[in-house]
C-alpha cells in the first residue's frame, strides 16, 4: 500500500492518494494535505464544507459528489469551485480524510 509523508509521518493512502484510515486524520493533517493540494489556508467556509462532507460520509458511506455537497454544506457550486479549485468534491474529500466520491454528478 502507498504511503504519503505528512508532517513527518508516513500515512497509508489509497490509489487516489486519499487517507485509508480515518483515525490518521486530524485538523493539522487536513491543513497539510490542503497545502499539498495548493490551498494555502483553510478558512471557516472550507471547514464548513469539510465537516459537511464527513457528516454525509458517516451517514451514507460515500462522500457526496458536487450536487449533494452543495445541499449538505449550504455552499453554492460557484463558491465550491473557488474554495477548492480543480474539482471541489474530490479535493474536499481528500482534505477531509475520506475516499474520493463515487457519484457521477
Amino acid at each position: 500500500m502507498d504511503t504519503l509523508e505528512i508532517l513527518g509521518k508516513h500515512l497509508a493512502v489509497d490509489k487516489d492518494g486519499n487517507l485509508v484510515n480515518r483515525s490518521d486524520w486530524n485538523e493539522e493533517i487536513a491543513r497539510a494535505i490542503a497545502a499539498q493540494e495548493g490551498i494555502a489556508e483553510l478558512t471557516d467556509r472550507h471547514w464548513a464544507v469539510i465537516r459537511a462532507m464527513q457528516k454525509a460520509f458517516d451517514r451514507d458511506g460515500d462522500a457526496p459528489s458536487i450536487r449533494r455537497l452543495t445541499n449538505e454544506s449550504g455552499v453554492d457550486v460557484k463558491t465550491l469551485y473557488q474554495l477548492f479549485p480543480k474539482g471541489p468534491a474530490k479535493k474536499a474529500a481528500k482534505i477531509a480524510g475520506l475516499p474520493k466520491p463515487k457519484g457521477c454528478i
Binding site: S65, I66, R67, R68, D76, V77, K78, Y81, G103, C104, I105
Partner: peptide, 18 residues
C-alpha cells in the same frame, strides 16, 4: 433518485463550475 438534476438546473450547475 441518482441526484441528476433537471436540464435547467443541471445547465446552471455546469455553468457555475466555470
Amino acid at each position: 433518485k441518482l441526484d441528476i438534476p433537471p436540464v435547467r438546473e443541471f445547465l446552471q450547475m455546469i455553468h457555475d463550475t466555470g
